[in-house]
Design a protein around this nucleic acid. Structure first.
Lengths: 360, 360
DNA sequence: GCGCTTTCAGAAAACGTTTTCATAAAAACC
DNA sequence: GGTTTTTATGAAAACGTTTTCTGAAAGCGC
């Protein structure tokens, strides 16, 4: 038993197995056939010595880091975890490590993620550094944007969700099934892409039913509970009439619902409410929120898949829009629940109608 | 203007600045003073050439990866995002990159995170590989466990939350403020550490009030909504009397609440319900859930801090318990809300009592 | 001014792999 | 059975840094 204070290297393995280091490298990577008996000796030696190849040395020699980087602005929000989960799964599947970095507003101090430590980048941030993006783009560095179209018309592949269709589905549902005509839209922050597309879906759905678009029905929701709350209260006190609210996201839906309850409007009888995103608590609201679900985990997974193609020198799809799915619950006026897990029925029996009456 | 197809190296910078590569390295790392004029020339050259040092080469030469690894089992659950956020912030603060890896049940195919690619490990998983853990431990590799005590009495630092105190606070509150005596405890999965400690807090709180512990009041909740739902239905149909439920976590609290509503028991009048964790939707339940909040982001941050000490060769604290905080809402019987954001009052006025009456 | 220490800078040796190149042995060909 | 092709293997050259070692110049005390 040799007691080494330094971890074994490929040379130790080579010595132990009585082959050259090149041979060890070959069985390690399977790059070239080696005779079975030698290969066995090498594998045995690796086992005995508990050999683990030094990552840095491989990277340096092979010029491939085997790592993908994820740069993002905020680690939070309801859809960060499933997104990360999908990314992690995709990275694992493709045999890459995952390096993550959250950009800070302190300005781009140094360049934490780039060609020096990753083979490709997943970019999920609203405050990207244009200079750096151009630099990487110009050197043809593999990148995929999540949930955001590239600036300056650079052709960087994008994975996003079908915001417009999702919104249209919701609004169509309100119109066709529940006969609503005066539908408020609570838009998100100015310049927010998701919000813009959802608004477009809203408008197109109205048009397709020959309902005249009324600008008075558009209010700021800012994707925020309190802002939405304030907006709806304002509309009510302004005397604007409406029979449904399409909140730009689930957070603003909550605020809208609160404002309605306080005003004594019954959801969904007086006003139907729908959200967007299907955050985890949407099903626990009363009434349970009708909304739209995006396949968030699949987005992360698909993004890695596209990035992998890029890193392999193949072509990637310029724009991948993931289809969204209507999640019908109670707040739109439907009584039958669509719930993935069990127990939905039971919940349905208990949570309708009476509660808002207790206000009036 | 030289057009290079290969990224510049330290040698290019040296040539450009007319110094040796050693000097460039020195100004890069500030390891040794160099004359101001030369240093300036070097910095200028780096700028002009857009030089970014190759990470792998530095790692190889310096034998420090400047990276910490996070190994975990599941990317999900309500407290993963804040935890990761704290970790990321801590890593950034300490100047480390963050490599993350999710263990899979497929068995330990290879060793994805270890001494070969990280300087230290944060371990947040329930299914850790004991062999690998021992190996790393024996080589004195810096590690910190999150939310789990080390197996085999290895002295690996641990960061966890004050489960016992938190539980005791809740139960004390139920007893002292609301006069409850027959308190159900919905325990988590067998062998789950958090659950065991919470149960201990429950028992001690009872004892300190001279309330006899009744085994019939302990039921399996499995930290799962459906299991908890079934358990409470069972207890009700078994005719077991109780006036409060301490659910091991917020998920099981939801299940318990549903079972109570269906049985026509009014929360909190007939039965008070409290949870644990303060997941995001706890405040949206009706009645809003009284629970315990853990400083999850701080845990992640603190874990990195301890790990950094270890990596610097200093001593780390063997056990760090983060204090928990009672979050009083409505489900315990209190009407005054403690809510971090605004709007709490409004919510309070609307969500009490009547709803469960609509069932009976 | 003369030894002695200090400061700064360059040459060169690691660091631990992959990969190219050359070559010996084996297989294939006629 | 010689020549050619294929195959397996080793030697050695990258890969791009940090770090040691060495030496030159500069500063210091007297």
């Amino acid at each position: 038993m040799t007691l080494r204070n330094r971890p074994p290297t490929i040379a130790d393995v080579a010595g132990h197995a009585e082959v050259s280091i090149a041979t060890v490298s070959r069985v390690l990577n399977g790059t070239t056939p080696v005779q079975p008996d030698k290969a066995d000796r090498v594998r045995l030696a690796m086992d005995e010595l508990q050999f683990v190849p030094r990552h840095a040395a491989r990277v340096l020699a092979s010029r491939r880091t085997n790592t993908i980087g994820l740069v993002m602005s905020e680690i939070s929000g309801a859809f960060f975890p499933p997104m990360l989960k999908g990314i992690e799964a995709g990275a694992h599947e493709a045999g890459y490590d995952l390096l993550i970095h959250s950009t800070r507003k302190e300005g781009p101090s140094r360049r934490p993620l780039g060609e020096h430590n990753t083979d490709g980048l997943l970019i999920f941030t609203d405050s990207l550094d244009h200079r750096e993006l151009h630099r990487l783009y110009n050197m043809n560095f593999p990148m995929v944007l999540l949930h955001q179209t590239p600036p300056d018309a650079l052709d960087i592949p994008v994975i996003a969700i079908e915001n417009k269709d999702g919104a249209a589905m919701l609004v169509n549902h309100l119109i066709e099934i529940h006969g609503r005509r005066r539908i408020v839209f609570l838009r998100g922050p100015q310049g927010h892409e998701d919000s813009a597309w959802r608004e477009r879906g809203y408008v197109e759905a109205l048009e397709s039913h020959n309902i005249k678009f009324d600008p008075a029905l558009i209010a700021p929701g800012e994707f925020d509970e309190e802002e939405a709350f304030a907006s709806i209260q304002q509309m009510i006190s302004d005397g604007i009439e409406f029979d449904a609210i399409f909140a730009g996201d689930d957070d603003s839906a909550i605020g809208a619902m609160r404002a309605l309850k306080i005003a004594g409007r019954v959801i969904p009888l007086d006003v139907a409410v729908v959200g967007f995103d299907d955050v985890p608590f949407a099903r626990y609201l009363s009434p349970a929120l009708t909304t739209v679900r995006a396949p968030i985990e699949a987005i992360g997974h698909e993004a890695v898949r596209q990035l992998a193609r890029l890193m392999n020198g193949e072509q990637a799809q310029a724009l991948t829009l993931m289809r969204t799915e209507l999640v019908i619950r109670e707040s739109c006026g439907c009584q039958l629940l669509f719930l993935p897990s069990t127990g939905g029925e039971a919940q349905a029996t208990i949570s309708l109608a009476p509660e808002s009456k207790s206000i009036a």
